[in-house]
Amino acid sequence: MANSYINLFACCLIVKGNRRSTLVDIQRGTFIFLPLNISDLLLTSRSITIGQIFSSYSVEDADEISKYFDYLIENEYAFYTMNPESFPLLSLDWKTPHHITNAIIDYDSGSRYNIVDAISQLEHLGCAVVQIRFYSRVGLEFLLQTLNGISKGSGRIRSLELILCFNEEISKEQYRKLIKKFPRVIKITVHNSPFQYKYQFPDSINEIEYINQHIKDETHCGFVSPEYFRANKYFFTESQTFNSCLNRKISIDKFGEIKNCPAMQIGYGNIATMSLMEVSQQSHFQDVWNINKDKIDICSDCEFRYLCTDCRAFTQDPHNRYSKPLKCKYDPYTMVWS
Protein backbone atom coordinates (compact mmCIF):
# COMPACT_ATOMS: atom_id res chain seq x y z
CA MET A 1 0.00 0.00 0.00
CA ALA A 2 2.66 2.50 1.03
CA ASN A 3 4.43 2.24 -2.31
CA SER A 4 1.26 2.57 -4.39
CA TYR A 5 -0.20 5.79 -5.74
CA ILE A 6 -3.62 7.36 -5.40
CA ASN A 7 -4.91 8.30 -8.82
CA LEU A 8 -8.06 10.21 -9.71
CA PHE A 9 -10.07 8.57 -12.50
CA ALA A 10 -9.33 10.60 -15.62
CA CYS A 11 -12.96 11.72 -15.84
CA CYS A 12 -12.79 13.30 -12.36
CA LEU A 13 -11.24 16.71 -12.76
CA ILE A 14 -10.14 19.25 -10.19
CA VAL A 15 -11.14 22.87 -10.71
CA LYS A 16 -9.40 25.18 -8.24
CA GLY A 17 -11.29 28.21 -7.03
CA ASN A 18 -10.10 30.98 -4.74
CA ARG A 19 -11.11 29.32 -1.48
CA ARG A 20 -11.94 25.71 -2.39
CA SER A 21 -11.92 23.31 -5.31
CA THR A 22 -14.58 21.32 -7.07
CA LEU A 23 -13.95 17.76 -8.20
CA VAL A 24 -16.06 17.48 -11.33
CA ASP A 25 -17.12 14.00 -12.40
CA ILE A 26 -17.81 14.51 -16.10
CA GLN A 27 -18.75 10.85 -16.60
CA ARG A 28 -21.45 10.62 -13.94
CA GLY A 29 -22.42 14.30 -14.17
CA THR A 30 -21.83 15.37 -10.56
CA PHE A 31 -19.33 17.34 -8.49
CA ILE A 32 -18.10 17.55 -4.92
CA PHE A 33 -16.08 20.11 -2.98
CA LEU A 34 -12.52 19.59 -1.80
CA PRO A 35 -10.29 21.79 0.36
CA LEU A 36 -7.53 23.45 -1.66
CA ASN A 37 -4.74 21.58 0.10
CA ILE A 38 -6.31 18.20 -0.65
CA SER A 39 -6.80 19.08 -4.30
CA ASP A 40 -3.18 20.28 -4.52
CA LEU A 41 -2.08 16.98 -3.10
CA LEU A 42 -4.16 15.06 -5.64
CA LEU A 43 -2.70 17.09 -8.49
CA THR A 44 0.77 15.77 -7.60
CA SER A 45 -0.17 12.32 -6.33
CA ARG A 46 0.63 10.64 -9.64
CA SER A 47 4.32 11.02 -8.88
CA ILE A 48 4.42 10.61 -5.09
CA THR A 49 3.64 7.34 -3.35
CA ILE A 50 1.11 7.16 -0.54
CA GLY A 51 3.97 6.42 1.84
CA GLN A 52 5.87 9.52 0.78
CA ILE A 53 2.74 11.66 1.15
CA PHE A 54 1.99 10.48 4.68
CA SER A 55 5.59 10.65 5.86
CA SER A 56 5.78 14.37 5.09
CA TYR A 57 2.86 15.23 7.40
CA SER A 58 2.23 15.08 11.13
CA VAL A 59 0.24 12.10 12.39
CA GLU A 60 -2.88 14.27 12.80
CA ASP A 61 -2.66 15.76 9.31
CA ALA A 62 -1.95 12.38 7.76
CA ASP A 63 -5.01 11.05 9.51
CA GLU A 64 -7.13 13.87 8.06
CA ILE A 65 -5.71 13.28 4.57
CA SER A 66 -6.33 9.57 4.78
CA LYS A 67 -10.01 10.24 5.59
CA TYR A 68 -10.32 12.18 2.34
CA PHE A 69 -8.51 9.44 0.44
CA ASP A 70 -10.87 6.81 1.89
CA TYR A 71 -13.84 8.91 0.81
CA LEU A 72 -12.49 9.29 -2.73
CA ILE A 73 -11.79 5.56 -3.05
CA GLU A 74 -15.12 4.56 -1.51
CA ASN A 75 -17.06 6.78 -3.89
CA GLU A 76 -15.03 5.81 -6.96
CA TYR A 77 -13.43 9.18 -7.61
CA ALA A 78 -9.97 7.65 -7.25
CA PHE A 79 -8.19 4.30 -7.16
CA TYR A 80 -4.92 2.93 -5.91
CA THR A 81 -2.39 1.73 -8.45
CA MET A 82 1.24 0.71 -8.71
CA ASN A 83 1.38 2.01 -12.31
CA PRO A 84 0.08 5.56 -12.55
CA GLU A 85 1.88 5.93 -15.91
CA SER A 86 -0.60 3.41 -17.40
CA PHE A 87 -3.45 5.84 -16.77
CA PRO A 88 -2.87 9.00 -18.81
CA LEU A 89 -4.82 12.17 -18.09
CA LEU A 90 -7.82 12.92 -20.23
CA SER A 91 -7.11 15.19 -23.15
CA LEU A 92 -9.17 18.36 -22.67
CA ASP A 93 -9.22 19.16 -26.39
CA TRP A 94 -12.50 20.27 -27.84
CA LYS A 95 -13.22 20.30 -31.54
CA THR A 96 -16.12 19.95 -33.88
CA PRO A 97 -16.58 19.34 -37.61
CA HIS A 98 -19.29 22.00 -37.65
CA HIS A 99 -18.73 25.69 -38.26
CA ILE A 100 -21.90 26.46 -36.28
CA THR A 101 -23.12 24.04 -33.61
CA ASN A 102 -26.13 25.75 -32.09
CA ALA A 103 -28.61 28.50 -32.86
CA ILE A 104 -31.39 30.55 -31.29
CA ILE A 105 -34.18 31.91 -33.43
CA ASP A 106 -36.56 34.46 -31.92
CA TYR A 107 -39.97 35.21 -33.38
CA ASP A 108 -42.96 37.20 -32.24
CA SER A 109 -46.12 38.68 -33.73
CA GLY A 110 -44.12 41.59 -35.20
CA SER A 111 -41.48 39.41 -36.90
CA ARG A 112 -41.50 39.60 -40.68
CA TYR A 113 -38.53 37.48 -41.75
CA ASN A 114 -38.78 34.08 -43.45
CA ILE A 115 -38.26 31.55 -40.69
CA VAL A 116 -38.26 28.51 -43.00
CA ASP A 117 -35.45 30.04 -45.03
CA ALA A 118 -33.50 30.80 -41.85
CA ILE A 119 -33.82 27.19 -40.76
CA SER A 120 -32.73 25.81 -44.11
CA GLN A 121 -29.65 28.02 -43.87
CA LEU A 122 -28.90 26.48 -40.47
CA GLU A 123 -29.27 23.04 -41.98
CA HIS A 124 -26.79 24.02 -44.67
CA LEU A 125 -24.36 25.21 -41.98
CA GLY A 126 -24.58 21.80 -40.30
CA CYS A 127 -25.96 23.31 -37.11
CA ALA A 128 -27.08 20.33 -35.01
CA VAL A 129 -28.99 22.04 -32.20
CA VAL A 130 -31.63 24.72 -32.76
CA GLN A 131 -33.90 26.51 -30.33
CA ILE A 132 -36.86 28.51 -31.64
CA ARG A 133 -38.55 30.92 -29.21
CA PHE A 134 -41.98 32.26 -29.99
CA TYR A 135 -42.82 35.09 -27.63
CA SER A 136 -46.38 35.44 -28.86
CA ARG A 137 -49.01 32.90 -29.89
CA VAL A 138 -48.61 30.99 -33.11
CA GLY A 139 -51.14 28.75 -34.81
CA LEU A 140 -50.69 25.07 -35.50
CA GLU A 141 -50.69 25.68 -39.26
CA PHE A 142 -47.67 27.98 -39.00
CA LEU A 143 -45.82 25.46 -36.83
CA LEU A 144 -46.51 22.66 -39.29
CA GLN A 145 -45.25 24.76 -42.18
CA THR A 146 -42.07 25.62 -40.30
CA LEU A 147 -41.40 22.03 -39.27
CA ASN A 148 -42.16 20.66 -42.72
CA GLY A 149 -39.41 22.93 -44.00
CA ILE A 150 -37.03 21.25 -41.57
CA SER A 151 -38.04 17.70 -42.35
CA LYS A 152 -37.32 18.29 -46.04
CA GLY A 153 -33.71 19.20 -45.25
CA SER A 154 -30.68 16.93 -45.21
CA GLY A 155 -31.15 15.96 -41.57
CA ARG A 156 -28.18 17.87 -40.22
CA ILE A 157 -30.31 19.65 -37.64
CA ARG A 158 -30.50 16.85 -35.09
CA SER A 159 -32.45 18.41 -32.31
CA LEU A 160 -34.92 21.22 -32.15
CA GLU A 161 -36.42 22.84 -29.10
CA LEU A 162 -39.58 24.90 -29.38
CA ILE A 163 -40.53 27.53 -26.84
CA LEU A 164 -44.17 28.42 -27.49
CA CYS A 165 -46.62 30.85 -25.98
CA PHE A 166 -49.76 29.21 -24.57
CA ASN A 167 -52.53 28.97 -27.15
CA GLU A 168 -55.83 27.47 -25.95
CA GLU A 169 -56.65 26.44 -29.51
CA ILE A 170 -53.85 23.86 -29.53
CA SER A 171 -54.33 20.85 -27.27
CA LYS A 172 -51.67 18.82 -25.50
CA GLU A 173 -52.59 15.94 -27.76
CA GLN A 174 -51.88 18.03 -30.84
CA TYR A 175 -48.43 18.91 -29.53
CA ARG A 176 -47.85 15.25 -28.81
CA LYS A 177 -48.78 14.38 -32.38
CA LEU A 178 -46.47 17.11 -33.61
CA ILE A 179 -43.52 15.53 -31.81
CA LYS A 180 -44.47 12.09 -33.09
CA LYS A 181 -44.49 13.44 -36.62
CA PHE A 182 -41.24 15.38 -36.13
CA PRO A 183 -39.16 13.40 -33.63
CA ARG A 184 -36.30 15.83 -34.06
CA VAL A 185 -38.36 18.23 -31.93
CA ILE A 186 -36.92 16.98 -28.66
CA LYS A 187 -38.73 19.44 -26.44
CA ILE A 188 -41.74 21.73 -26.53
CA THR A 189 -42.00 24.23 -23.71
CA VAL A 190 -45.29 26.11 -23.48
CA HIS A 191 -44.93 29.33 -21.48
CA ASN A 192 -47.61 31.67 -20.12
CA SER A 193 -49.71 28.59 -19.37
CA PRO A 194 -52.53 28.77 -16.78
CA PHE A 195 -51.52 25.28 -15.61
CA GLN A 196 -48.38 23.23 -15.18
CA TYR A 197 -47.91 19.96 -17.00
CA LYS A 198 -45.10 17.67 -18.00
CA TYR A 199 -45.10 14.74 -20.39
CA GLN A 200 -42.13 12.50 -21.12
CA PHE A 201 -42.36 10.26 -24.18
CA PRO A 202 -41.74 6.64 -23.23
CA ASP A 203 -38.23 5.36 -24.07
CA SER A 204 -37.14 8.61 -25.63
CA ILE A 205 -35.76 12.00 -24.69
CA ASN A 206 -38.66 13.92 -26.20
CA GLU A 207 -40.78 15.89 -23.78
CA ILE A 208 -43.50 18.50 -23.44
CA GLU A 209 -43.66 20.95 -20.57
CA TYR A 210 -46.18 23.67 -19.72
CA ILE A 211 -44.93 26.44 -17.42
CA ASN A 212 -46.72 29.39 -15.81
CA GLN A 213 -43.94 31.84 -16.46
CA HIS A 214 -44.47 34.25 -19.32
CA ILE A 215 -41.38 34.51 -21.52
CA LYS A 216 -42.04 37.92 -23.08
CA ASP A 217 -38.71 38.59 -24.71
CA GLU A 218 -35.00 37.78 -24.92
CA THR A 219 -34.15 39.33 -21.54
CA HIS A 220 -35.34 36.13 -19.91
CA CYS A 221 -31.94 34.48 -20.13
CA GLY A 222 -28.45 34.49 -18.68
CA PHE A 223 -29.28 33.22 -15.21
CA VAL A 224 -26.43 31.53 -13.39
CA SER A 225 -27.26 29.20 -10.53
CA PRO A 226 -26.46 25.62 -9.46
CA GLU A 227 -29.68 24.28 -10.97
CA TYR A 228 -28.31 25.19 -14.40
CA PHE A 229 -24.90 23.60 -13.81
CA ARG A 230 -23.81 20.99 -16.28
CA ALA A 231 -21.07 18.45 -15.61
CA ASN A 232 -20.38 16.68 -18.87
CA LYS A 233 -17.38 16.12 -21.08
CA TYR A 234 -18.57 18.16 -24.07
CA PHE A 235 -19.40 21.22 -21.98
CA PHE A 236 -16.40 20.96 -19.66
CA THR A 237 -13.87 20.64 -22.48
CA GLU A 238 -15.47 23.34 -24.61
CA SER A 239 -15.40 25.72 -21.63
CA GLN A 240 -11.64 25.27 -21.23
CA THR A 241 -10.91 27.24 -24.38
CA PHE A 242 -14.18 28.74 -25.58
CA ASN A 243 -17.11 30.74 -24.36
CA SER A 244 -19.54 28.34 -22.73
CA CYS A 245 -22.61 30.07 -24.14
CA LEU A 246 -21.66 31.73 -27.41
CA ASN A 247 -19.04 29.51 -29.00
CA ARG A 248 -20.18 28.60 -32.52
CA LYS A 249 -23.64 29.93 -31.76
CA ILE A 250 -25.63 32.08 -34.17
CA SER A 251 -28.87 33.87 -33.38
CA ILE A 252 -31.58 35.76 -35.16
CA ASP A 253 -33.50 38.24 -33.03
CA LYS A 254 -37.18 39.02 -33.51
CA PHE A 255 -36.31 41.81 -35.99
CA GLY A 256 -34.25 39.46 -38.15
CA GLU A 257 -30.93 40.87 -36.93
CA ILE A 258 -28.15 38.28 -36.95
CA LYS A 259 -26.32 38.27 -33.63
CA ASN A 260 -24.23 36.11 -31.30
CA CYS A 261 -27.21 36.10 -28.94
CA PRO A 262 -30.60 37.77 -29.39
CA ALA A 263 -30.13 39.74 -26.16
CA MET A 264 -26.83 41.30 -27.23
CA GLN A 265 -26.60 44.84 -28.60
CA ILE A 266 -24.46 44.28 -31.67
CA GLY A 267 -26.08 43.02 -34.86
CA TYR A 268 -23.98 41.96 -37.84
CA GLY A 269 -26.59 42.34 -40.57
CA ASN A 270 -30.20 41.44 -41.24
CA ILE A 271 -31.32 38.03 -42.45
CA ALA A 272 -33.27 39.84 -45.18
CA THR A 273 -30.04 40.98 -46.82
CA MET A 274 -27.26 38.77 -45.48
CA SER A 275 -26.80 35.03 -45.13
CA LEU A 276 -25.99 33.28 -41.89
CA MET A 277 -22.88 31.84 -43.54
CA GLU A 278 -21.57 35.30 -44.53
CA VAL A 279 -22.11 36.71 -41.06
CA SER A 280 -20.73 33.72 -39.19
CA GLN A 281 -17.48 33.87 -41.11
CA GLN A 282 -16.72 37.46 -40.10
CA SER A 283 -13.88 37.53 -37.61
CA HIS A 284 -15.68 40.19 -35.52
CA PHE A 285 -18.61 37.84 -35.19
CA GLN A 286 -16.31 35.11 -33.90
CA ASP A 287 -14.49 37.33 -31.35
CA VAL A 288 -16.70 36.35 -28.42
CA TRP A 289 -16.24 32.64 -29.15
CA ASN A 290 -12.81 32.78 -27.53
CA ILE A 291 -13.80 34.51 -24.30
CA ASN A 292 -13.41 31.54 -22.01
CA LYS A 293 -14.05 31.64 -18.27
CA ASP A 294 -10.36 32.03 -17.46
CA LYS A 295 -10.43 35.45 -19.14
CA ILE A 296 -13.47 36.75 -17.27
CA ASP A 297 -13.07 38.87 -14.13
CA ILE A 298 -13.97 37.05 -10.91
CA CYS A 299 -15.12 33.93 -12.83
CA SER A 300 -11.45 33.08 -13.39
CA ASP A 301 -11.18 32.56 -9.61
CA CYS A 302 -14.36 30.52 -9.34
CA GLU A 303 -14.52 26.77 -8.71
CA PHE A 304 -17.72 26.51 -10.82
CA ARG A 305 -16.23 28.07 -13.95
CA TYR A 306 -16.46 25.00 -16.19
CA LEU A 307 -19.91 24.00 -14.88
CA CYS A 308 -21.90 27.17 -15.45
CA THR A 309 -23.02 28.76 -18.69
CA ASP A 310 -21.51 32.19 -19.27
CA CYS A 311 -23.52 35.23 -20.33
CA ARG A 312 -22.11 38.13 -22.36
CA ALA A 313 -25.45 39.88 -22.92
CA PHE A 314 -26.02 40.96 -19.33
CA THR A 315 -22.81 41.80 -17.47
CA GLN A 316 -21.94 43.86 -14.40
CA ASP A 317 -20.04 46.40 -16.47
CA PRO A 318 -21.30 46.64 -20.07
CA HIS A 319 -18.18 48.62 -21.06
CA ASN A 320 -15.85 45.80 -20.07
CA ARG A 321 -16.05 42.79 -22.36
CA TYR A 322 -14.52 40.59 -19.65
CA SER A 323 -17.00 41.58 -16.96
CA LYS A 324 -18.73 39.00 -14.77
CA PRO A 325 -22.29 37.90 -15.74
CA LEU A 326 -24.83 40.23 -14.14
CA LYS A 327 -27.21 37.47 -13.15
CA CYS A 328 -24.64 35.39 -11.27
CA LYS A 329 -25.03 35.83 -7.53
CA TYR A 330 -22.04 33.79 -6.41
CA ASP A 331 -18.92 35.24 -4.85
CA PRO A 332 -15.94 32.86 -5.05
CA TYR A 333 -14.00 34.96 -2.49
CA THR A 334 -16.59 34.42 0.26
CA MET A 335 -18.16 31.20 -1.15
CA VAL A 336 -21.59 32.76 -0.66
CA TRP A 337 -24.62 32.89 -2.99
CA SER A 338 -26.41 36.17 -2.37
Binding site: F9, A10, C11, Q27, R28, E76, F79, E85, S86, F87, P88, L89, L90, S91
Partner: peptide, 10 residues
Amino acid sequence: DKPNRYVPYA
Protein backbone atom coordinates in the same frame (compact mmCIF):
# COMPACT_ATOMS: atom_id res chain seq x y z
CA ASP B 1 -27.29 4.24 -12.37
CA LYS B 2 -23.60 4.04 -11.63
CA PRO B 3 -21.73 3.38 -14.88
CA ASN B 4 -18.33 1.68 -14.76
CA ARG B 5 -15.35 3.98 -14.85
CA TYR B 6 -14.04 4.33 -18.42
CA VAL B 7 -10.62 6.00 -18.63
CA PRO B 8 -7.77 6.28 -21.15
CA TYR B 9 -5.11 3.61 -20.85
CA ALA B 10 -1.51 3.47 -22.06
